[in-house]
């Protein structure tokens, strides 16, 4: 090297600083830009009234209901399976070909793009099982999508419960399931919840997998078999069809704020979890 190390250092570090600042600036810009344009248009009426004229006017109430219904149903379906799988992998079996296959399956599932989930949900739930465009089809599709996340985070959470707790429980005459149910799961709960929260965030933001399975009806749903339009789908339609930029920004703001709040609370949970463990 001919260039003196000191100069390389200065050059390299300043490039790094620039790149970091650019990254942060871009990311902050996106939030500020959307919230800046959206917040002024948000009021109680927007949140609690029905859309009019395809969404050009009025509010987004049915899409909020749709998002909540779809997300909750998906979580209720995926969580027992995800946590159950994690319990099986950590407590009921030892590392073997079977556990490797299960983990491999979960990893592959995690790598499948959401549009493929959409295609699958459409052909399987909507068409083959005749569920039609409905909350049920959409949430089952979403459940498939978030299953790997819940498995992974639950597994981590369960593994972090000290082995000695299990030993104490067994030594006091507990069966394996009693130990899992009374000691392991309660202590892994914050970690499991973190995974669930992350999945909620992902479900709320998802569009491609939902638009072909839950449809895009703007009516407030009354049962699991009704078609719904989620906030993300509504936002996509508003933006793509150029119906109303004003409403699009406002919807995006509600979307972003709810996801940020959910992710923040999962952080808070995680931190509490870590704090308690180190205490």
């Amino acid at each position: 090297m001919i260039i003196r190390p000191k100069y390389t250092q200065v050059l390299a570090v300043s490039l790094l600083v620039l790149a970091t600042l650019a990254t942060l600036a871009i990311l902050v810009f996106i939030i500020v830009f959307v919230l800046g344009k959206g917040l002024p248009n948000i009021n109680a009426e927007f949140l609690f009234s029905n859309p009019e004229d395809m969404g050009r006017a009025g509010g987004i109430f049915p899409t909020i209901v749709g998002t909540v219904a779809l997300t909750l149903t998906a979580i209720c379906i995926a969580t027992p399976f995800g946590v159950g799988t994690a319990v099986f992998l950590t407590e009921y079996t030892r590392e073997s070909r079977i556990t490797r296959i299960i983990r491999f399956g979960a990893d592959c599932l995690a790598g499948i793009p959401s549009i493929i989930f959409g295609l699958f949900g459409f052909i399987f739930f909507v068409t083959y099982l005749r569920m039609g465009w409905s909350i049920l089809s959409g949430s089952l599709t979403l459940a498939f999508m978030i299953l790997p996340t819940i498995i992974r985070t639950s597994e981590e959470a369960i593994k972090s419960v000290p082995y000695s707790y299990r030993e104490v429980s067994f030594s006091l005459g507990a069966t394996l399931w009693q130990t899992v149910y009374k000691v392991v799961l309660p202590n892994a709960l914050p970690g499991i919840l973190t995974g669930v929260m992350l999945s909620v965030g992902r479900s709320i933001g998802e569009t491609a997998a939902i638009i072909f399975t839950a449809g895009s009806s703007l009516r407030t749903p009354h049962s699991l078999f009704d078609s719904v339009r989620t906030m993300s789908v509504h936002f996509y339609i508003l933006a793509r069809e150029g119906l109303s930029n004003e409403k699009a920004y406002a919807t995006a703001t509600v979307l972003i704020v709810s996801i940020l709040m959910i992710n923040l609370s999962s952080y808070w949970l995680m931190n509490r979890f870590i704090l308690r463990k180190t205490k």
């Binding site: 990311l27 992902r202 936002f235 933006a239 995006a252």
Partner: peptide, 17 residues
Amino acid sequence: PTIELLAGIPSVVYGFI
């Protein structure tokens, strides 16, 4: 955490920007 929070912004919003 701020950066990770940003990973949660829905893709449709990025598209819109």
